[in-house]
Design a protein around this nucleic acid. Sequence first.
DNA 1: CGGCATCCGGCGGGATACTG
DNA 2: CAGTATCCCGCCGGATGCCG
Lengths: 125, 125
Amino acid sequence: MDTTDYDLENLPPDLSYEDFLQMLLPLRDSLDILGGKWKLQIIFSLKFGRKRFKEIQREIPGITSKMLSKELKDLEMNDLATRYVHNTAPITVEYELSEYGKTLKSVVIELYKWGSAHRKHITSK
Amino acid sequence: MDTTDYDLENLPPDLSYEDFLQMLLPLRDSLDILGGKWKLQIIFSLKFGRKRFKEIQREIPGITSKMLSKELKDLEMNDLATRYVHNTAPITVEYELSEYGKTLKSVVIELYKWGSAHRKHITSK
DNA sequence: CGGCATCCGGCGGGATACTG
DNA sequence: CAGTATCCCGCCGGATGCCG
């Protein structure tokens, strides 16, 4: 696989278009993981500790079980959240943000900072 | 308007859901501006200087004039790109990344860094 | 050349019902 | 309770054509 790391400040001038698209992949990964209607809300919900499926759903008005289930599976696939199944009757499942998931913090903060400054920039004209 | 800035590290525990959604808005702004199929490619294309409409389109295989036009208008609305119209026949139009647009750099780099590390994290399991 | 108008297909995602 | 299955609608975005 291709593990080339690019220095975004100084991209090689002879970068082929294919390599350019390769370079965009990690960027898209980040955007996909945080993008969409529900991802951020779920991630923030899990930031405050281990939660049951229904708890999360209650905290996020409007989300259907289908969407929540799909998004959680997504987070789990990306190793960002961990799923705990308990042999109770009826079954209960808990989710928590993984240690690795917490590495998202810096990106999220950066996005927030820029977005926040941007709102001011835009409304000041 | 609401210009409250939140400290994402220490969110007030009594944060109402409405305030929480408010807090997400800047994050969504950032994600919307960089997300989508073409935004990054266009931004990177403009990073290398002032370009004509057709030039950009040639550099981005597959993009239709409709999409390019829409995305550029979007960037312009957000003050990220500047449009220059020349009274030639036929008309020519140039675009360039605004000075303000360059402030995106830190966010983009952060997204790239995390996404890049994430690819390694995921493929190493 | 730089766009806008129109038509249209795919799909993200909502509503609802059902199951282990 | 924690999902899955089905149906369905809106809309993003592609294709094509036209216009100043």
